[in-house]
């Protein structure tokens, strides 16, 4: 072994020098006292992998056997949800959009921001900032300390991150959904409460069944899962029938940045009914 260079008296080694020295010590220690990956660590890895595959097979089996309904298909709501829902139909808009569970935390973020002015903060702003922080972590936390009790900031940050993601996921999972069959029952109440004219009633029924209430609320009915605005008194803004129709056909063309889907497939006639209903909605009378 080469002669030991003595530490320079009074000169503190730089952070990088310390880290290099520590890593060299780590390498040497592992070489001298470590154990070979095979069979020791590999045994643990193999056991864990078998557990993972068993869990996946188990989930597949539960999914299959609890969602196989009386009609001999997989549309039955089992413990883990149906194996498939009805075929995709761009024409029926009465479906509640729902992502896979691991996107719930993103999905729920949307409710925290106002549409449409600041919705991009929820859709891309906050996630992008979080992602940049995640990438930058090794350059933010440059201390060599690894023991948890000596890293209070890191521990608190981790705990807060886990907590907020868990809360957002839970909120997203339990967010109220509006079923068209229940919403339609409220239409007479709307007519009474808002004193809607007769020609607005077909639009109101359409509003209840065409999926609008999957994202919007109206007199407390409907779901605000995605944080879309309440439409109880949208008519007081006097946007005009033509604007409403144009907006329904292509929301992002009229309100840049709006994440609302296009409802062009409803057809001119029904879009006009919807527009009349929206314009007649002046809030509780």
């Amino acid at each position: 072994m080469a002669a030991a260079p003595q530490r320079h008296a009074g000169v503190k080694p730089s952070r990088l020098e310390e880290a290099r020295a520590q890593f060299a010590r780590y390498k040497e220690d592992v070489k001298e006292r470590g154990k070979p990956f095979y069979p020791y660590a590999m045994f643990h890895d193999t056991v864990m992998s078998l557990v993972v595959v068993s869990v996946i097979v188990g989930l597949a089996a539960i999914w299959k056997w609890t969602s196989y309904g009386p009609h001999h298909d997989g549309t039955h709501q089992g413990l883990l949800g149906p194996e498939y829902t009805a075929p995709a139909d761009p024409g029926t808009t009465s479906f509640v959009p729902r992502p896979d569970w691991y996107f719930y935390f993103l999905f729920y973020l949307l409710r925290i921001f106002k549409w449409p002015e600041s919705v991009f903060l929820g859709t891309v702003g906050v996630p992008t900032i979080c992602l940049i922080l995640l990438f930058a972590l090794p350059f933010i936390d440059v201390r060599r300390e690894r023991r948890l009790l000596h890293r209070p900031v890191a521990v608190v940050a981790a705990a807060l991150t886990i907590l907020s993601m868990a809360v957002l996921t839970w909120k997203g999972a339990t967010a109220k959904e509006a079923l068209a069959s229940e919403v339609i029952a409220d239409v007479p109440n709307w007519v009474k409460a808002e004193k809607l004219p007769q020609n607005a009633v077909p639009g109101a029924r359409l509003f209840a069944t065409a999926g609008c209430t999957a994202c919007h609320t109206y007199l407390g009915t409907g779901s605000s899962n995605l944080g879309a605005p309440d439409l109880t008194q949208i008519g007081t803004r006097n946007l005009g029938i033509d604007f409403q129709i144009r907006h329904l056909k292509c929301p992002s063309c009229v309100v840049p940045g709006s994440p609302m889907p296009k409802f062009e497939s409803l057809g001119e006639e029904r879009l006009r009914q919807l527009a009349i209903f929206l314009e007649a909605s002046k809030g509780k009378q």
């Binding site: 829902t85 995709a88 992002s252 940045g257």
Partner: peptide, 18 residues
């Protein structure tokens, strides 16, 4: 299916707000 289609409609629209 419907789940797939409508979740993707919204998902793409959300990306579109960037």
């Amino acid at each position: 299916d419907q789940t797939a289609y409508w979740a993707t409609v919204v998902g793409i629209n959300l990306n579109g707000t960037a």
